[in-house]
Amino acid sequence: MSVPAEKLKWMYETMFKIRYYEETMVKVYMEGKHPVFNIGAGPVPGEMHLAAGQEPAAVGICAHLHEMDTVTAPHRPHHHAIAKGVDLDRMTAEIFGKETGLGKGKGGHMHLFDPKVKFSCGGIVAAGIPHAVGAALAAKMKRKDWVAVAFIGEGAANAGAFHESLNLAALWKLPVIVVIEDNSYGISVPKAASTAIQSNDKRGAAYGVPGFYVKDNDPIEMCRVSGEAVERARRGEGPTIIEIETYRFLGHFQGDPELYRDPNEVPSLRQNDPIQRLKELLLKENLVSSAEIAQMENRARQDVDRAYEFAKKSAYPKPEAALEDVFVDA
Score class of each variant (00 low, 15 high):
213 Y>T: 12
259 L>T: 02
211 G>N: 11
209 V>D: 05
280 E>Q: 14
279 K>S: 04
227 G>H: 11
194 S>F: 03
235 R>K: 15
220 I>G: 03
278 L>P: 09
198 Q>F: 07
193 A>N: 11
274 P>C: 06
224 R>Q: 14
222 M>Y: 06
216 D>V: 00
188 S>F: 09
251 G>M: 01
209 V>Y: 08
245 E>N: 09
213 Y>W: 05
215 K>F: 11
214 V>I: 12
248 R>C: 02
248 R>G: 03
216 D>L: 07
199 S>N: 15
246 T>S: 11
244 I>D: 04
259 L>M: 01
207 Y>A: 10
265 E>W: 02
182 D>K: 13
203 R>F: 10
222 M>R: 07
198 Q>R: 15
262 D>W: 01
272 N>I: 07
224 R>P: 06
235 R>Q: 14
194 S>H: 10
256 D>R: 02
272 N>T: 14
188 S>P: 00
205 A>Q: 11
263 P>V: 04
192 A>L: 08
182 D>N: 15
263 P>F: 03
254 Q>I: 01
248 R>H: 02
274 P>I: 08
249 F>A: 02
184 S>C: 05
283 L>E: 10
186 G>E: 05
258 E>H: 02
214 V>L: 07
273 D>Q: 03
208 G>C: 13
233 A>P: 13
204 G>M: 04
280 E>D: 15
266 V>N: 01
192 A>S: 13
229 A>Y: 04
194 S>C: 12
238 G>W: 05
251 G>W: 06
189 V>K: 02
220 I>N: 07
249 F>E: 00
251 G>C: 01
229 A>H: 08
207 Y>G: 07
235 R>A: 14
273 D>I: 10
284 K>D: 07
250 L>S: 00
190 P>W: 06
258 E>W: 01
276 Q>I: 04
255 G>D: 03
184 S>D: 12
257 P>Y: 00
287 L>N: 06
182 D>C: 06
188 S>W: 05
279 K>G: 08
241 I>T: 12
190 P>N: 11
212 F>N: 10
288 V>M: 15
264 N>T: 11
201 D>H: 15
279 K>Y: 07
200 N>M: 15
250 L>N: 00
228 E>K: 14
221 E>H: 03
241 I>N: 14
223 C>N: 11
280 E>P: 01
242 I>E: 09
247 Y>C: 05
219 P>S: 13
215 K>C: 10
251 G>R: 00
258 E>C: 03
203 R>V: 13
243 E>P: 03
200 N>K: 08
201 D>L: 09
278 L>I: 10
